[in-house]
Each structure stands twice: as C-alpha cells, then as structure tokens.
C-alpha cells in the first residue's frame, strides 16, 4: 500500500497570539476530492497555504506524497529545507486562488507558459504548444492572446487553473475558486474542476458550493476555529451533520 497523497499530523499555526490552526489531522488518499468548508476565519486558507509552505506551520508535520513539506529531519530535529528543494515541492502542488492572481502583464497563453519556461526550463516553442493544449482543455483556446484584464472572471480563473496544471502537479489546492465570480460564471469554473476530478487529480477545494461538494467531493471536512470538527462522505455530512456548529453553519449556506 502506497502512502496517502496528503497526511497532516497535529498541524498548528499562529499569527502572533492568534492561534489559527490548533492541531489539524487529515489524511487524503490519491485521487480523492476533498472539500473543506467552514465559517470565515476558521483557518481554511491558512491550512491550504501550509500545505505548499506559503505559511510555515509552527508545529506538526505535513507529508505530501510521502515527502515532508518544508523541512528535513536530521538527527531528530527539523531544519528548513534549502530553497531549491522547497521550490521543487511547490512545483508539484498546484494552487488556485480566490482572486486568480494571473500575471497581468502576460497574455493568457504566456501565463500558462510562465511556469514551464521559468521553472521547468522548457523551450519556448514547446511551452507554447503545451500551454495551447491546456488552454484548449479549459475551453479558452480562442482567448490565448488576451490579457487578463480583457477576460471575464470565469475565464481568468480557468486560465489560472491551466497555469497550475502546466506544472503537472500531483495535488491541486483550490482556495474558494468561485467566490469572487458573478453567479453566472461559477458554473464554467466548476465544470473544469469536475473534469479535472474525473481525470483522477487529487484535489483539496475550499468552497461554499455545497452542490459541488455533494456531487464531486469524495470527502467533506468541516473546520471551525482552527480545528476539523467533523468529516466524512459529503452526502452524509450534509444530510445529517453530527455536530451542532456544522448544523448551524450549513443552515446558513444551504
């Protein structure tokens, strides 16, 4: 049996005196789609950002594909990973942001090419071809030469997904990918994510889209106040939440 794709053990993170993650335990198998829900400020984004070490957790271990993230263990002590190795880890973990964060000075195609050229060192001609294929996959082949400012929110988010996919990640993190979108644009992004899930990608999705969680999610995690207080198959958790606070939250978003 191979290691799970993600294993978090007792992950803790504080900002100054504010404890944002207070001991997160989480196991995600390969190919699983895990949806993370919970009230604002419960630490969902911080958890995702710890997974690719954009934030340094103060305690606990995070393994992705069997590899300890952000640190190396030597003689029973943790040391920060050398930059180059941390970058390799980040390369294999895609991240999609609520506000897209496309590079505004590059066209859609150049955005998707960027990681290939600047990180993987792929030749420009090859990168262009591969980026074109990826844009086609998210349905934006005809928008390749548009700048982000000339694209709708939904189109920008699909470019952002293609940009992450270009790195051939083994894990994709989505932080509220549809929260900044007009309602009529949410569907096109969820559709791309659904295809991605069907292709076998392991995904962690912070979302308020309960329909997506129910339909596409394999596992649902409910976070509150820095802890996972309930988890399980989405249909079961959504139909019969066991915890009082889950019920209260769901009654508001459903």
């Amino acid at each position: 049996m191979t290691a799970p794709m993600v294993r978090c053990r007792q992950v803790r993170k504080s900002f100054g005196r504010l404890e944002v993650l207070r001991g997160i335990d989480l196991v995600i198998e390969r190919g699983q789609v895990v949806c993370v829900v919970g009230p604002s400020g419960s630490g969902k984004s911080t958890l995702l950002r710890c997974l690719n070490h954009l934030e340094e957790p103060q305690a606990g271990r995070i393994h992705v594909d069997g590899e300890l993230i952000g640190y190396e263990e030597r003689g029973g002590r943790l040391r920060p990973l050398p930059d180059a190795r941390l970058r390799r880890q980040r390369e294999s973990i895609g991240m999609v942001f609520q506000r897209f964060h496309l590079f505004p000075h590059r066209t859609a195609l150049e955005n998707v090419m960027e990681g290939l050229v600047a990180v993987k060192g792929v030749r420009v001609a090859d990168a262009r071809k591969r980026a074109g294929d990826l844009l086609d996959r998210v349905g934006l082949a005809d928008r390749a030469h548009h700048y982000p400012a000339q694209l709708s929110g939904g189109q920008q988010q699909r470019v952002a997904i293609a940009r992450s996919l270009a790195m051939s990640p083994k894990l994709m993190l989505f932080d509220e990918p549809t929260s900044a979108l007009d309602p009529e644009l949410v569907g096109e992004v969820l559709e791309v994510m659904k295809d991605l899930a069907a292709s076998g990608m392991t995904m962690i999705v912070v979302t308020h889209e309960m329909g997506f969680a129910r339909e596409v999610g394999d596992h649902l995690v409910f976070m509150d106040d820095g802890l996972i207080i309930e988890e399980g198959p989405p249909r079961e958790v959504l139909a019969a939440p066991a915890h009082e606070r889950t019920r209260a939250f769901l009654s508001k978003v459903l």
């Binding site: 954009l54 180059a84 970058r87 895609g94 964060h101 990681g115 600047a118």
Partner: peptide, 22 residues
C-alpha cells in the same frame, strides 16, 4: 499586489526570478 508573488512562488519560482519576471 502581494498575491502576484504568492502565485509565482506557488509555481515554484525562485525569489530572484519572481522579482525579475513577475
């Protein structure tokens, strides 16, 4: 926007490249 640096870092870019390219 600081989000630009994060997006680039998440792709695995080095600090120098983030500065120069993004």
């Amino acid at each position: 926007d600081p989000g630009q640096q994060e997006a680039a870092a998440a792709l695995g870019m080095s600090r120098a490249k983030i500065m120069r390219r993004v």
